[in-house]
């Protein structure tokens, strides 16, 4: 059997199965949904294991460079080799690393996180989570401060009385655009100032800030619609490709089958209601 054609039929079935939810929730949609969740979880786990845990963790704990048949450490490795030879190949893992015993710490933290599956040991998972949260918080604090606060603040320091600039330009720099940027930034920030009641002049200024925010939300909505339509186009392009005779008109047959099944179930449901 030609696997390309088989793959095309599977792809068409799953696409139309997901689309069938637009009609109503149904078992065909559920099959596709569950399949997606299961395959994604399995795929991610495999990729994570073979791209990070095996080469970068085990590869640093038992590198082939330091392999010796006599030591206790590699004696343990030889036992692992007997149990799982594909993960722990004979003679150590050759991924270009040196031996680093410090990597026993992430190994221990990883195992402790997995222990959350057992009720009596689930407190241990907190250590691993605490490390991850702490590391992420530290990393992000710097990144946000540098790129989102300082750099963005710098970008708002713009000349509003520069005679070289044109009065108005739709896209490029101009007095008008700089003025809009300044007003938008100030009023937008003032809207989020909650230590003073939003009334009087302050209320009016913060209301201008709301309008700027609303324009931004409108743009976000427009982009979201554009994105969803793009994805729909992507699926339709594939469905059109797979409806050709070289794929035995997969799209048309699967569509017919699905309409027939959903139509039949709608009719039987109506009869049961009566």
């Amino acid at each position: 059997m030609n696997f390309e054609i088989f793959g095309a039929w599977i792809s068409v079935f799953l696409t139309l199965a997901i689309f069938s939810f637009l009609y109503k929730d149904n078992p065909i949609y559920k099959i596709a949904e569950h399949l997606f969740v299961g395959v994604s979880a399995g795929y991610w786990m495999t990729i994570f294991f073979w791209t990070q845990i095996q080469p970068n963790l085990f590869g640093r704990l038992w590198p082939s460079k330091e392999y010796s048949e006599t030591g206790i450490w590699y004696g343990l490795y030889d036992v692992l080799n007997i149990v799982a030879g594909s993960i722990f190949p004979e003679g150590g893992i050759d991924k270009g690393h040196d031996l680093h015993f410090s990597y026993l710490i992430p190994l221990a933290l990883g195992i402790m996180m997995l222990l959350s599956l057992f009720k009596s040991f689930n407190w241990m998972a907190r250590w691993g989570i605490a490390y991850t949260v702490g590391m992420a918080a530290g990393l992000r604090a710097y990144g946000y401060l540098n790129s989102n606060v300082i750099a963005q603040l710098k970008a708002t320091i713009i000349p509003i009385a520069n005679t070289d600039l044109p009065i108005f330009s739709l896209l490029g720099e101009s007095h008008f655009n700089n003025f809009i940027l300044l007003i938008g930034t100030l009023t937008g920030l003032l809207y989020f100032y909650f230590s003073k009641e939003h009334s009087g002049v302050f209320g009016k200024v913060s209301k201008i800030g709301i309008y700027f925010l609303m324009i931004s939300f409108g743009a976000s909505f427009g982009f979201a619609v554009m994105g969803r339509i793009s994805l729909l186009i992507g699926r339709f392009v594939e469905l059109i490709t797979f409806s050709s005779s070289s794929y035995h008109h997969a799209s048309l047959w699967v569509l017919l089958l699905m309409v027939a099944i959903l139509g039949y179930s709608a009719v039987t449901e109506k009869r049961t209601e009566i």
């Binding site: 963005q152 970008a155 931004s216 743009a219 976000s220 982009f223 994105g227 793009s230």
Partner: peptide, 26 residues
């Protein structure tokens, strides 16, 4: 980027931190 991300990334483009952006399918 995907269309949905454009609004999020655009401030970096405007500030000169990123040189241009290809916004979604267009």
């Amino acid at each position: 980027t995907t269309s949905i991300q454009v609004n999020e990334v655009m401030p970096y483009v405007q500030a000169g931190q990123v040189q241009g952006i290809l916004a979604g399918m267009p």
